[in-house]
Design a protein around this nucleic acid. Sequence first.
DNA 1: AACCAGAATAAGTCTAGACATAGAGAATTC
DNA 2: GAATTCTCTATGTCTAGACTTATTCTGGTT
Lengths: 240, 240
Amino acid sequence: MAAGAASSKARTIADEVRRRIVEGEWRQGDRIPDEADLAIEFDAARATVNKALQLLANDGLLDRRRKAGTRVTVDPVRKASFTISIVREQVEQAGMAYSYRVVAQRRSPVPAGLAARIGLKQGEVLVRMRAIHYADDRPFQLEDRWLNLRATPTLAEADLRQLNANEWLVRNAPYLRAEMAFSAENADRRDARLLGTQPGRALLVLYRSTWNDLGPITTVRVAFQPGHIVGTEGNFWPDR
Amino acid sequence: MAAGAASSKARTIADEVRRRIVEGEWRQGDRIPDEADLAIEFDAARATVNKALQLLANDGLLDRRRKAGTRVTVDPVRKASFTISIVREQVEQAGMAYSYRVVAQRRSPVPAGLAARIGLKQGEVLVRMRAIHYADDRPFQLEDRWLNLRATPTLAEADLRQLNANEWLVRNAPYLRAEMAFSAENADRRDARLLGTQPGRALLVLYRSTWNDLGPITTVRVAFQPGHIVGTEGNFWPDR
DNA sequence: AACCAGAATAAGTCTAGACATAGAGAATTC
DNA sequence: GAATTCTCTATGTCTAGACTTATTCTGGTT
């Protein structure tokens, strides 16, 4: 809750500049003093001021351009960062027992739409698996995953039935790029059956795909149990 | 799409270290050479190596501790950052005409649950307003907002009917802290009517609250039109 | 008025060196 | 054996100074 704010000169400067912006002393679009001036004001080296201002620029609070100087961002964009942790940890942290069951697994050619979206030739054969994650024996989330064994040579197909694919991937297949998207979908009959709910219930659905240098690793549709909320705390606040 | 990666020595080092991790040269939990050694290897100052490693640590790829050294993170957490832009911009960027209509506005005491969540005394009177954002005359999103005029002294109640509250706030009331959460809800009768859809349809719903040093500024429930997707690209990838 | 070249400027980056500080591991004491 | 203190090390941070680079601005040219 409280700002962990490890004190450091750069952090102090950043906080003071932030304060001036938040309290309206420096208004949106205003040009703020340049690094050299601030360095004098705060009795710091320019590099330190630079670091402080970069922190704020990363938070989207400042716009900085060479020669043009530093300005207070006009339409600050709201950024929020979500942390998607491993399901098992999430469940266990809530004090519930975690279990996992593979519902189906087979090789299957990728449908055209998906292939295009993740950058594969249509018809390429991937492993498709459905699994359910339980919290205290109640279905917690449902995953429908496509796995590209070519991008994860060390993962044998046979292992998949035993392993929690998500966990294996997190631990063993670092990715270079990831995309995520949230949407809401009405549970279809299968969703409802697997999640133990009624068809039509609104489900929060997360799509995630990851790539490494060998190509797409996996793409997954995760449907959460009805009522699930994914939250974050974020923005305009010291990150670390 | 491509890594914008402005080349810089620090960036180059970070990319190389990232490569070694992704390609398994350095495995999870491994201790990597210390800054001094890497500085020699890459013929750079230690400060530059430090900057490079801090970048990766921010991405969650490395764990760094004084004396203990730097290790490859064991269970990398998936972080993703979402950018919530101003509705109007979002709509206009899609080439559609934006409009906005206030459906209701009145002063109202905060219900207990909400008061507790955002840190107000129960019964405090806030302004509550409902509004619809349209894209090409089709309802795009629905907002149900509570506004604390005490935290935004310059905002007169009378203005609210004219203004787009969200935009006014973004431009004029910088916040210190924000919380966001996604969920999925079945449209109730009112949602459906205002969004021009059928009751029961799954809606992606975003809750957002913001605070400044005067207290809570606003809290809002945003319901998107059915089928709406909020996406991101993120993680393990250079931020900027 | 439109265009172009050069000067000036502010941020971007790097370096070498210094000191601060957390914390692991060893040595010491009880 | 457990607890405490000590020591040393790797990261954290800062500094002063230099050089680089993008971009604005200015003034001159067509």
